[in-house]
C-alpha cells in the first residue's frame, strides 16, 4: 500500500517549481496539491486549508510573510516544513525550518534528503506488500482462469461472490504484470500450475 502525502509548494519561479515537481514525481505517493507564489492574501490559511502533510517554502520569499507562515504552520500538528535554501539564505531564516533542502545540491542528493525527511511517514515501500507472491486463493483462481472458466463459474465453484473473484483477478494481474487470459495461461503453464492436457480437456 502506498500512503499518499499531500504536498504544498510556495515558490514563485517557474523553473524551480518545475524542478520540484520533477523530484516529487520520482517519489511514489507524493501528491503536489497546490502551488503558491508567496504573494497571495491569507497565504497561511490557504495553505492550512489544503491539509498538507508537507509544505516546501522557498526561503527567498518576503521575510515577513515567511515568518508569519512558519508561525502559523507551527500551530498545526504534524505538518512537515521544509525550507528551500541557497547560498544567500540568511541563517536566521533557514534556522526556522526543521528541515532544509539545499537547491544547489544535485538530483540524487535532493531525492535522498527528501526520502530522509519523509522517513516512515510515506511510501510504505511498494515492494513490501504489492509485489509478493500469489496467495493460495489467488493460485486457485489463476488455475481456474487458465482452464477457461468464467468469473461466474469460478465464483460458483469456490462459493465466492463474483465481486470477490474480480478483486482476486485484479490482484493477480497487478502482481504478475499480465493482463490477458492467454498471458495468464502462458504463465500457469510455464510454472506448471496446470498441464497442457488439462487445458485441452477443459476446452472440449
Amino acid at each position: 500500500m502506498i500512503v499518499h502525502l499531500t504536498v504544498v509548494l510556495v515558490e514563485s519561479t517557474y523553473l524551480i517549481r518545475a524542478g520540484i515537481e520533477n523530484l516529487l514525481s520520482e517519489l511514489p505517493g507524493m501528491v503536489l496539491q497546490s502551488v503558491f507564489d508567496g504573494t497571495e492574501k491569507n497565504l497561511s490559511q490557504k495553505i492550512i486549508d489544503c491539509k498538507p502533510d508537507l509544505v516546501i517554502v522557498n526561503c527567498s520569499i518576503n521575510q515577513q510573510i515567511l515568518v508569519s507562515l512558519v508561525n502559523s504552520l507551527n500551530t498545526e500538528n504534524g505538518v512537515i516544513q521544509i525550507g528551500l535554501t541557497n547560498e544567500n539564505t540568511p541563517l536566521n531564516i533557514s534556522s526556522r525550518f526543521s528541515h532544509i533542502l539545499n537547491s544547489n545540491e544535485g538530483k540524487f542528493e535532493l531525492l535522498e534528503a527528501l526520502r530522509k525527511i519523509i522517513g516512515k511517514r510515506g511510501i510504505k515501500n511498494e515492494t513490501e506488500n504489492d509485489q509478493k507472491n500469489l496467495t493460495a486463493r489467488e493460485l486457485t483462481i489463476l488455475k481456474k482462469v487458465s482452464l477457461g472458466l468464467t468469473n461466474q463459474q469460478i465464483a460458483d465453484k469456490l462459493f465466492l461472490s463474483i465481486h470477490t473473484v474480480m478483486t482476486h483477478r485484479k490482484n493477480i494481474t497487478k502482481k504478475l504484470g499480465i493482463k490477458t487470459v492467454s498471458g495468464l495461461i502462458v504463465y500457469a503453464l510455464m510454472n506448471k500450475l496446470v498441464e497442457m492436457g488439462e487445458i485441452e480437456r477443459s476446452r472440449k
Binding site: 504484470g177 499480465i178 493482463k179 490477458t180 492467454s182 498471458g183 504463465y187 510455464m190 510454472n191
Partner: peptide, 14 residues
C-alpha cells in the same frame, strides 16, 4: 494488453 503481457513474459518469466 497482449503486447504488454508479451514483454513481461520475456522480462519476468522466461
Amino acid at each position: 494488453e497482449k503486447l504488454f503481457d508479451l514483454k513481461n513474459i520475456i522480462i519476468k518469466y522466461l
